Amino acid sequence: MPIENIPEIYLPKTMEKPDLFVYDFKMTSDVVKSKVNLSMNMFSFLQVGKKQVHFAGTSVVVNKDQSLLLKKGNWLWTELLETEAIYYCKLLFFSEKILKEFLEKHTANTIIVKEDSPYFIIGNDTYITSYLNSLSTIGNAPAIFMENLLSVKFEELMLYLIQKYGQKFEHYLQSLIADGSSPFKKIIESKIHSNLRLEEIAFLCHMSLSTFKRRFIREYKVSPGKWLQDKRLQKAKETLEEGVLKPSEIYLDFGYNNLSNFSIAYKNKFGFSPSETAS
């Protein structure tokens, strides 16, 4: 799967990366777990559809009632159509430079806050709706005015969100200019019970698959495939023992493409089938 460099793929080839950039993203078919190298922090104002993002230590799902502020980094994201025939979101990218200028101007707190979360969820409201309409309107302005207009609109949005979410949002903004890189083991152990493939976990660790495997064996003294399979099967067993879900309802969640492969691996590990556990 190719890596998409965003926002670079949305910019004209001759254009340098600006401090502020707005892009209307639309699609008419589902995109599942695309690899994204996000080189700027980004607001994703989802207007039609559903978005899921896998980060190094967590994942999040939002619909059209929510928007996301995403920290720059390597992420996997899934964009899905819902009842409409189109997926649409407005993206607002901003540089660390312009964020630092805003924080220096409008906040007293100069302490950089260590924040684990790579995202902040924003509830869409009437202000957000009118704000997005205003962004669409200034998109028709002459290029010479765009930079100044966007700068004013960015400041307006940030001030509104600080007013709405208070210190929580202010601290989150501070964390965007901090070094929030996650330790290797923390990333691995947060993905034990996901259905991500090894190459996808390696991507979240900013590593090639071969480098990831070498580092994993050094840390855990076993191959990543074997280690993850054992952890996931153990969790699958615990899930089935609760007596609520059937094997056919969980195998995808634990990284298996079909029920047969899941059943064989399960029986090899525990000596009995998943259906025997569930019954």
Rank of each mutant, 00 (worst) to 15 (best):
P2M: 09
E4N: 03
N5S: 08
I6G: 00
I6C: 06
Y10E: 02
Y10D: 05
M15E: 14
M15C: 03
D19G: 04
F21E: 00
Y23Q: 03
D24L: 05
M27T: 07
S29M: 05
V31I: 15
V31Q: 11
V31P: 00
V32K: 06
K35Y: 03
V36D: 01
M40T: 01
M42Y: 06
F45S: 00
L46P: 00
Q47K: 05
V48R: 03
G49W: 00
K50C: 00
Q52T: 12
F55H: 02
V60R: 07
V62T: 00
S67C: 10
L68W: 11
L69M: 11
L76P: 07
L76M: 09
W77H: 09
L81E: 04
T83I: 10
T83E: 13
E84D: 11
A85R: 09
Y87P: 04
E96Q: 11
F102Q: 04
F102W: 09
F102R: 05
K105G: 03
T107S: 12
N109F: 09
I112M: 07
I112P: 00
I112D: 07
V113Y: 08
K114V: 04
E115S: 12
S117N: 13
G123Q: 14
G123N: 14
T129C: 05
L132Q: 11
S136K: 06
A141M: 13
A141T: 14
A143E: 15
I144H: 14
E147A: 12
N148Q: 14
L149Q: 14
L150H: 04
K153M: 14
F154R: 00
F154Q: 02
L157E: 01
L157N: 05
L157W: 00
M158W: 02
I162G: 06
Q163M: 11
K164R: 13
Y165K: 02
G166R: 07
G166F: 01
G166I: 08
G166W: 01
G166E: 06
K168N: 11
K168L: 07
H171D: 15
Y172E: 06
Q174F: 11
Q174P: 02
L176W: 04
A178D: 15
S181I: 12
S181A: 15
F184S: 08
K185Q: 15
K186S: 11
S190R: 06
H193P: 01
L198W: 08
E199M: 08
E199D: 15
E200T: 05
L204P: 09
C205A: 15
C205W: 03
H206M: 11
H206W: 09
H206F: 13
F212K: 10
R215S: 15
R215K: 13
F216A: 13
S223L: 10
P224Q: 05
G225S: 15
W227C: 04
W227R: 10
L228D: 02
K231G: 00
R232G: 02
K235G: 08
A236C: 06
K237C: 08
E238H: 09
E241Y: 06
E241G: 12
L245Y: 15
P247M: 09
E249F: 06
E249N: 07
E249P: 01
L252W: 11
Y256V: 00
Y256R: 06
N257M: 07
N257I: 03
N257C: 07
N258E: 02
L259N: 05
S260V: 09
S263M: 02
A265L: 12
K267G: 06
N268E: 14
N268F: 02
F270I: 10
F270M: 04
S273E: 10
T277S: 12
T277M: 06
